[in-house]
Write a protein that binds this DNA or RNA. Sequence first.
DNA 1: TTGTACGCGTTATCAC
DNA 2: GTGATAACGCGTACAA
Lengths: 344, 344
Amino acid sequence: MGQKKRSTISDVARLAGVSITTVSRVMNRNYPVREETREKVEKAIEELGFKPNLLARGLIHNKTQTIGIITPSIENLFFSEVVKGIDSVIKEKGYTTFLSNTEGNAEQERLMIENMKDRSVDGIICINPRTKNIKSGYYESVSKQIPLVIINGYNKGIHCNYVLNDGEVGTYEALKYLYELGHREIAFLRGQYSYSYDVKENVYRQFCDEYRLDYKEENILVVEDGNGLETVEQSKALVEKVIEENRRFSCLFACNDWMAVGALNAAKALNISVPEDFSIIGFDNTIISQITEPRLTTVDQNMTRLGQISGNRICEMIQDKDIEIKKIIIETKLIKRESSKELN
Amino acid sequence: MGQKKRSTISDVARLAGVSITTVSRVMNRNYPVREETREKVEKAIEELGFKPNLLARGLIHNKTQTIGIITPSIENLFFSEVVKGIDSVIKEKGYTTFLSNTEGNAEQERLMIENMKDRSVDGIICINPRTKNIKSGYYESVSKQIPLVIINGYNKGIHCNYVLNDGEVGTYEALKYLYELGHREIAFLRGQYSYSYDVKENVYRQFCDEYRLDYKEENILVVEDGNGLETVEQSKALVEKVIEENRRFSCLFACNDWMAVGALNAAKALNISVPEDFSIIGFDNTIISQITEPRLTTVDQNMTRLGQISGNRICEMIQDKDIEIKKIIIETKLIKRESSKELN
DNA sequence: TTGTACGCGTTATCAC
DNA sequence: GTGATAACGCGTACAA
């Protein structure tokens, strides 16, 4: 095919009748060049359609103007909105993003981080990483080698840069809201592995203690995949099964909107009306929560903003290597809609 | 910080007491090396934690093992599922993906393509590009420079590698299904700019002619943003307005599930019951269509598969530069659910 | 103001 | 089997 080779800086130099150094100076505007020479060079650049090779440049500077993003599954609205937030911010600063899905697999997660490092990215943002990899110290060692921001993951004593939603407060407010509506038997629905689920479960347990609710271990429901395309189905099946087994609770708190939708569908299948006979609260305030019937009461996480803040943060870290380590916590907000109601 | 510099091939060579050439051979296994030497080298590699610099490698081979993906908006389920499909396939072949959102902006789209080229990606996959950029010949010229696959975009006479859903057949079947249910006044809901909308609209017009339906220009409804987070709201507002203005149609065909959800919500707001008094059909079979109430009748596109096929295709193209240009068409399938019903 | 020459980290070519 | 050495495309001390 007509694939003419890309022209290089020396092609330009030859055509303009100058040295490659001069061409470089014209491009980078970092040294004075006589106006006349500059014009010659610019004309040559134009004519050849010359664009500098970013690989070569990266090799010299050891900077590539790229950011790696690791996410469990891009098809989850929560993550894709975060990714979009990151992308919008860093694109303006001239960065491009590498993206990789891990399917929530801890080993894959590490593999992808290593891959990003091998590709000399300038920084890495990891969304909802596996708790295991944080606890093991893996991420702490990574952040000693390269700027790293962890979104929605945290472990006390592990020094990393974190950006996270205040899942504690959000969960607490949601539970308290249910309590104030008169509910005393609250089911808790979560996925298997994630820091955010752990946090919420802890709050749930503490809350039950604090308000002397007679919670039973079996009111904590765990679906296998909390973030994938299967989540809705799995949650539905689980909640349906549990209700049919005659366990009693007047309401349910789900760790994300997908699980809440699953619970909602389970209720429908069993002819239990929401919110009259069963209240449901989700988490995340993805667009999903606005299109179900009834619309979901949920906890807003402002995912786009989460991404934007993380994007800005990683850029700061790249600029200033010795920047202090921080834990940035973003507020959540309870959004009351029609899936919750006072107990009859 | 403890950011020790990455060790290079010459560090390894020095430690092992051999030349860098030998180290390279051990790594790449492309030339015979004495067993004894190999062990020395491998030990040194291990000890230093040496990993080859992919930038340098790319500079030589002019291959980077990266693929660029351009998408209008990653937070749209359709696109993110496609991206996931691509990612899963090419990851296995050792590629990593660059991702960029264009927000449906035609200029941004070109800018991002150029960016990918500058980064020496081995191939580019563009999802739902703006028709304008195809028609203008822009993409045709790009594909002369670098392997390019266009997903869900097409223009006769423009020679590119396309992978697309059979939107024509899918739309036709959906309309015919509505017709067979007795509907004679069908509204058509689309977004502004995209090949896929154009295709569907054409089928709609032809269908009306063929079946002598008295379609009016005003039954073709156009929302501004067909792919963003605003789509549901915009569609709802539009459909609501149109129905209130007393235009008549017993059913509506939407170009994607989000728009269909908007229409569904409009019906709810107006107390029109679906499907009893109003039938709605969506397109894409995203998970959304399974969680609305009633669940949406829609046209399955199998987005993950679309991505996988495109991923495989781009890899083939990278391997064999002179591969023939192809248009791959993937079948769709009508999924009948509860949002459609025969006319009373 | 401009040019020469070397370095970034790797692979390929050619000797030995 | 192994080792110099020249590329790959660009940036930059240093010299002129």
